[in-house]
Design a protein around this nucleic acid. Structure first.
Length: 508
RNA sequence: GGUGACGUGGCCGAGUGGUUAGGCAGAGGCCUGCAAAGCCUUGUACGGCGGUUCGAAUCCGCCCGUCACCUCCA
């Protein structure tokens, strides 16, 4: 077994960094808690999904097979308190009444709309597709069955408001979050109405009776809708089996959501639900908690470029993974700009490689060993609790070695360089495609979507032509004036050995 | 109040009992008609106070600060 085959991750369950040991060797079965689609996703949501993405990529880079399930929560996520009692309102229903939600005729349309928006963000940020992306509303039958089983096993009971999981019947409750005692819940400040029929303050809702709810199904307990926690544990078990290898989510999900998942799943099967739990810390924006109140609430789509702006999207991805997932991370405008610079560097390496591979330069391959070691270093860092900062440093260091060669790169070295970038891309997902695969600004932009940025491509090219003539006759005053005009059109111009090139002005 | 995490140079962020993280910004240089872009070189550091140690930014204690969960949030 090579030394990279060891993949270590912090395990919330044990509080230690431990090797990830799939039940079936080299086959990782992973469940990642997905979004509740009541609004557009923000960058914090995606920091968490990116952690799962990087785990997958690292496992695959180690040669493992992966089965990844990530859900969409489109019903049942209560907006107030689903730990104590089911009197909370469903998030989806509340969203429909909000200002943003007014335009939707019903909650089903709202769910569909934000699900689609979420998938667009997912795609733009280059996350790997899950093998299954189950939706809660498509699994209500299985949810009801699971609740029935729990009731039959005396692990759940019905009240006039709903069906509760009975926490005292599950001895391991609290093993994930440390919130073991009912008294802790009682001590916490609460102003919610407690269902007096509840037998233990920790009991949580599996089913909420609500004949007026906008999304409701018929059940043995009448009309209503399922609780949030039961959705994830049931869907995970449907697609991944009773015992899964790894379960991920944001740190806020440790309690109550994941604690409750464990209680339900393990009560049903008598087996350990997930062997390993990985939680992503919340990020901060400009040094403070992300909040609408502070004006630093950033939705993914606000930061994405147009559909053609691959580099800008990768910059956002890069910025979001440039801190280790388990440490507080401060997302700033400057970070995003820096990430854009790095993406540009990867892009230039791609350009150089493209050139060299096509050339007949028959020099020796001076990069092979160096880049192989650099990649190994990056992979090793990722396998060590997802140390993205070190992995990114390695990616940049290898890229620097490629760029040092400039256009003197031999065809053989270019092949090594291409292998390196492809490997890094598979691992981190931050390397732009080679120019052949995308339109290259400055060369064939007339046909590309650069015009979609609001840039008048024809005008730019006409001005560049004029400037070229002015420079040829050494009329530099005129040439500089033309350059200013071009800049005013939102384009930056670079004179290169192979002639002037332009690209949309970077405004990160 | 309970529990946990973190505090690194102008900024972002690794690491670690003695040996360069990396990046951005700054400075110098190469290139350029001038620029820009690019490339090369480069300075500054480990919250405070004690303790352990030959040696601590790294371990321990206390203090200060920030953040998180316990209550909707990824």
């Amino acid at each position: 077994m090579s030394r990279e085959a060891r993949f270590r991750l912090f395990n919330t369950l044990t509080g230690a960094v431990e090797p990830v040991i799939p039940r079936e060797p080299k086959h990782l079965r992973m469940y990642g808690c997905g979004p509740t689609v009541y609004s557009y996703a923000h960058i914090g949501n995606f920091r968490s999904f990116l952690t799962a993405d990087l785990i997958l990529r690292t496992a695959q880079a180690l040669g493992w097979k992966t089965t990844y399930v990530s859900n969409i929560t489109d019903v049942g996520h209560l907006s107030t308190d689903d730990t104590i009692d089911p009197s909370g309102e469903d998030r989806m229903a509340r969203a429909l009444r909000s200002k943003e939600g007014e335009r939707f005729p019903n909650v089903w349309d709202l769910a569909r709309y934000y699900t689609d928006a979420f998938l667009q963000d997912w795609d733009a940020l280059g996350l790997l597709e899950p093998d299954v992306r189950p939706r809660a509303i498509e699994h209500v039958r299985e949810l009801i069955q699971a609740i029935e089983e729990l009731v039959a096993a005396q692990l759940a009971y019905e009240t006039s408001l709903g069906v509760y999981f009975s926490v005292p019947g599950f001895a391991d409750y609290g093993k994930l979050s440390g919130n073991e005692k009912a008294s802790l819940l009682r001590n916490a400040a609460r102003d919610v109405v407690v269902d007096t029929e509840k037998r233990d303050p920790r009991d949580f809702a599996l089913w909420k009776k609500d004949p007026h709810h906008l999304m409701q199904w018929h059940s043995p307990w009448g009309w209503g809708f399922p609780g949030w926690h039961i959705e994830c544990s049931v869907m995970a078990q449907i697609y991944l089996g009773d015992e899964i290898d790894l379960h991920t989510g944001g740190e806020d999900l440790i309690f109550p959501h994941h604690e409750c998942e464990i209680a339900q799943a393990e009560s049903l099967t008598g087996k350990p639900f997930a062997r390993h739990w990985a939680h992503t810390r919340f990020l901060q924006v400009e040094g403070r908690k992300m909040s609408k109140r502070f004006g630093n609430f950033l939705r993914v789509r606000d930061l994405l470029g147009s559909h053609a702006a691959q580099e800008k999207n990768l910059a956002l991805r890069m910025a979001l993974i440039s801190g280790q997932y388990r440490k507080p991370y401060n997302f700033t405008r400057a970070t995003l700009r820096d990430a854009g610079v790095h993406i540009g560097r990867f892009k230039r390496a791609r350009d150089i490689i493209q050139n060299a591979t096509d050339s007949q330069h028959s020099g020796r391959d001076n990069l092979c060993d160096l880049l192989r070691n650099t990649y190994r270093h990056a992979l090793h860092a990722m396998a060590d609790d997802l140390n993205t900062p070190v992995a990114i440093a390695a990616a940049l260091s290898g890229t620097k070695s490629i760029l040092e060669n400039g256009y003197d790169l031999s065809a053989a070295a270019a092949r090594s360089a291409k292998t390196f970038l492809d490997q890094i891309d598979a691992l981190l997902g931050v390397i732009p495609q080679s120019p052949a695969a995308t339109a290259e600004p400055g060369e064939s932009q007339a046909a590309s979507a650069v015009g979609g940025n609001g840039i008048d491509v024809k005008a730019v090219e006409r001005l560049i032509g004029e400037r070229r003539k002015a420079r040829a006759r050494k009329d530099y005053a005129r040439a500089d004036a033309l350059r200013d005009e071009i800049l005013a059109l939102g384009v930056e111009l670079h004179d290169t050995p192979s002639g002037p090139k332009w690209r949309p002005k970077t405004t990160l």
